[in-house]
């Protein structure tokens, strides 16, 4: 079984080496790592290259959605069976990878999300962000009857048919909640498992107040519009 870890990174030179090292320490599961450097202005690419990581350098900044989709395109091209997304800022602890892929290997789920709220351990994010997260999980439950406690979590794993789907179409910015609705519409099984997230060590998070408001509005509209799409089938010409 071929497993790929996709690490989207934008200006994460301070964190990326530690992350790759700790990924390598996970010897229970065998996987390849690909770092998607989203046109960082710092030395993210070199830092990852120094520790021997496989790096894809995007020539222009695409934002998280475009960067992650590049990883899925890579996974699809190289016939991976499972793809796991791990943020480049070191918030996601690699020791949970084996828990994340277990339901997929056992064919109990197509898509697994690592949630920091199932067992409420570790870094619980700021109060403001938690309000947004609760709002999204309520709206997703209301519209799709799918329980997701951490819809904005970027720590997730998926099987080959979702890899193919994501390679074709993936939302551009703030994609996490939208992909859940998108997968639910295409009748995939989604499961959450408890994980512990760390507070980021170096670098700065890309979310501020004004962006959060835009995030909430944009994602809400995106979710509502996704409901109007055909029940089955990929968005034409891939992801606007």
């Amino acid at each position: 079984m071929k497993i790929l870890v996709i690490v989207p990174a934008y200006n994460e030179a301070d964190n990326i080496q530690n992350l790759i090292m700790s990924l390598r320490h996970e010897i229970e599961v065998e996987f390849d790592i690909v770092v998607i450097n989203d046109c960082s202005t710092d030395s993210t690419s070199n830092a990852a290259f120094e520790v021997g990581a496989n790096v894809i350098d995007l020539p222009c900044n695409l934002g998280i959605g475009g960067a992650v989709q590049t990883g899925y395109k890579y996974a699809y091209k190289h016939n991976y069976d499972i793809a796991i997304q791990v943020d480049g800022d070191g918030q996601h602890n690699p020791k949970f990878i084996k828990d994340l892929i277990e339901p997929i290997i056992l064919k109990k789920a197509d898509f697994v999300i690592g949630s920091r709220f199932l067992e409420r351990e570790g870094f619980q994010s700021s109060a403001l962000r938690r309000i947004g997260i609760v709002y999204f999980s309520k709206i997703i439950y209301l519209l799709t009857k799918q329980k997701v406690t951490d819809p904005t979590s970027g720590f997730r794993a998926c099987n080959a048919s979702i890899i193919k789907m994501f390679a074709n179409s993936y939302p551009i910015d703030y994609p996490e909640p939208e992909t859940i609705v998108f997968l639910k519409r295409n009748e995939f099984t989604i499961k959450e498992i408890p994980v512990v997230m760390e507070e980021r060590v170096g670098g700065v998070s890309s979310i501020n107040l004004l962006k959060s408001v835009y995030y909430m509005v944009k994602v809400s509209i995106a979710i509502l519009i996704d409901l109007m799409r055909d029940r089955k089938g990929v968005i034409k010409n891939g992801s606007v």
Binding site: I36, D57, L58, L62, K73, Y74
Partner: peptide
């Protein structure tokens, strides 16, 4: 852009 990154 994505295709270019993959090709590089």
């Amino acid at each position: 852009i994505q295709e270019m990154g993959l090709l590089k």
